[in-house]
Design a binder for these strands. Structure first.
Length: 529
RNA sequence: GCCGGUAUCGUCUAGGGGUCAGGACACGUGGUUCUCAGCCACGGGACCGGGGUUCGAAUCCCCGUACCGGUACCA
């Protein structure tokens, strides 16, 4: 090395990749690995590459590939190179790179760094059992190591099934400096000769990753720690090809509450499930970044770009983290409060449709939703809980409310307020906004002499049908505006209106009774003197 | 079995030879709002065990233990 002149770091700019196999929904643990890669590329001005590892023909499908891509995009991750983005080092699907693996296998074979193996699955299985029984490591016996190349070729040409195995050097230590774990050392004595090319001609994982990472110029391999013991095999392959290996960083896995790897029996595990339940993408991404990493002093709720600016691989923790649904809920609540009302309205639509409260929303419906949903979202963990908070609009029943003994008791004690309310509302114009509602409350205070809880809580019971929910300032005007939806302009629904009046504005919502109707119905259901 | 990895409040973490071991989520108590959520204040709660090095160990070393991963013609 000559002193003086600055030597450009070959690892800068960084090229990192996420390489899922399309065999199922994107797991949140893998999503976190993808996110770490993205954060690193984004924060360092590097390149993020998406490669699809679909060499398991049995389990891989284009549908899963689509699903994974959709989830990555949903989370806000994008890639400069890869499937659907293109790039100079493609193709980016392993099934389209078969010629490359074949060529490199031939090269290894030619240099005797690899050899053909004709052992049958049964033979291999018997070997393994024997080794285990004798307390030896169950690695490949090396039976076919000594078959002369010519003989092997003849057998292959005669149609005998064979795999290509890598010749692992004996008695060597393979050492690498893991960016998150420090020095890791393996002895080749415990590594059996790995299969490079399967008998069906497809490359095995350990071979394909190396060829791809090398040819794609990957500088940093960030992946789950389940790959840590694959690393020495891969390093040996880099060596055999004379390639400079990338830096490796093995991040820990995401666990369930019982400290076993997060799986179905813990509940939701895929990005898709969290999306469907109404988790916001920025919330999931932010939360995932917080498992095993901390943005340092201050607020940990930060936009992706800010996380990227602070992210350093060296700061990623070594121990596995438990996926904490409570904390995710907290993060999601935070972003729910920040979200744009119309965005929230649109996201809420499918959840309302599931309750059959809504068919296809019109623009007016969406505007209406946008005026209530933020208030409902303010006290909820996820979007799928919003229907519960909007039940007062679409599923009001005075009778059902009074079936609750506590509600009944309170209503009994507030008859004067309830009677006054019913009277007030039949006389007044619809309380279409906060000011109108407050003015009405003021008049009721004067009429009844009640105030505070004694006044407002009965009003809540009567107009929303329950003891708790969205603040009345928002709920009551929402009821009133909702009651106008799908009704002839300027007046409430009357018998004969349906389908008869050309002025009816269409609405996908189930009809919402007005405050006046509610008060009358409640007053009547309460009965008595 | 063998190989590798990991170990700070219930959870995510900060720290790292001398700290009252800090923060966040969750939890408890009180306050505030018509209610729920929230918000504010206060509070309980941790360095896996055992040896060693050291004046001093949660921090360094060793040995255990527990958990996780690998040991595939899955990735």
């Amino acid at each position: 090395m000559s002193a003086g002149s600055p030597i450009p770091d070959p690892r800068s700019p960084m090229r990192v990749r996420f390489a899922p196999s399309p065999t199922g929904q994107l797991h949140v643990g893998n999503a976190r690995t993808a996110l770490f890669n993205w954060l690193l590329a984004r924060g360092s001005g590097g390149t993020f590459i998406l490669r699809i590892e679909d060499t398991d023909v049995e389990r891989s499908s284009r549908e899963w590939e689509r699903a994974i891509i959709e989830d990555l995009r949903w989370m806000g991750l994008d890639w400069h190179e890869g499937v659907e983005a293109g790039g100079a080092r493609g193709p980016y699907r392993q099934s389209e790179r078969l010629h490359l693996y074949r060529a490199h296998a031939v090269e290894l074979l030619a240099h005797d760094r690899a050899y053909r193996c004709f052992c049958s699955a049964d033979q291999l299985e018997a070997d393994r059992r024997a080794a285990l029984a004798e307390g030896r490591p169950p690695k490949y016996s090396g039976r076919c190591r000594g078959i002369p190349r010519d003989a092997a070729r003849r057998r292959v040409e005669a149609g005998e099934p064979a795999v290509v195995r890598f010749r692992v050097p004996d008695r060597r230590d393979v050492v690498f400096d893991d960016v998150v774990r420090g020095e890791v050392r393996f002895s080749t004595d415990v590594i059996g000769d790995p299969v490079l090319v399967r008998s069906d001609g497809y490359p095995a994982y350990n071979f394909a990753v190396v060829v791809d990472d090398a040819l794609m110029g990957i500088t940093h391999v960030i992946r789950g720690e389940d790959h840590i013991s694959n690393t020495p095999r891969q390093l040996l392959l880099y060596e055999a090809f004379g390639w400079t290996p990338p830096a490796f960083a093995h991040v820990s896995l995401v666990m369930g509450p019982d400290h076993s790897p997060l799986s179905k029996r813990h509940g939701a595990t895929s990005v898709k499930e969290f999306r469907d339940r109404g988790c916001l993408p920025e919330a999931l991404a932010n939360y995932l970044a917080l498992i095993g990493w901390s943005p340092g002093e201050g607020n940990e709720l930060l936009p992706l770009d800010e996380l990227a600016a602070r992210f350093r691989l060296e700061d990623v923790g070594r121990s596995a983290g438990v996926f904490d649904v409570e904390k995710l809920a907290w993060v999601n609540r935070h972003y729910l409060k920040l979200a744009d009302p119309m965005r929230l309205a649109r996201l809420t639509v499918p959840h309302l449709q599931r309750e059959a409260w809504l068919s296809e929303p019109t623009d007016a419906d969406l505007n209406f939703l946008a005026s209530v949903v933020p208030a409902a979202a303010a006290s909820v963990d996820r979007l799928d809980q919003i229907p519960g908070r909007l039940r007062f609009l679409f599923d009001y029943s005075a009778r059902r409310a009074l079936d609750d003994p506590a509600v009944r008791a309170e209503a009994e004690g507030a008859r004067s307020v309830i009677a006054a309310l019913a009277e007030e509302l039949t006389a007044a114009a619809p309380l279409l906004d906060r000011e109108a509602f407050r003015a009405a409350v003021g008049r009721l205070r004067d009429r009844t002499g009640q105030k505070g809880r004694a006044l407002l809580h009965p009003i809540r019971l009567v107009l929303t049908g329950g003891p708790e929910g969205v603040e009345l300032d928002v709920a009551v005007p929402a009821v009133e505006r909702g009651a106008l939806l799908g009704r002839p302009k300027g007046r409430p629904l009357q018998t004969g209106d349906v389908g008869a009046d050309l002025q009816v504005r269409p609405s996908g919502f189930r009809p919402i009774p007005s405050a006046a109707d509610r008060a009358a119905a409640f007053h009547e259901a309460l009965g008595g003197p």
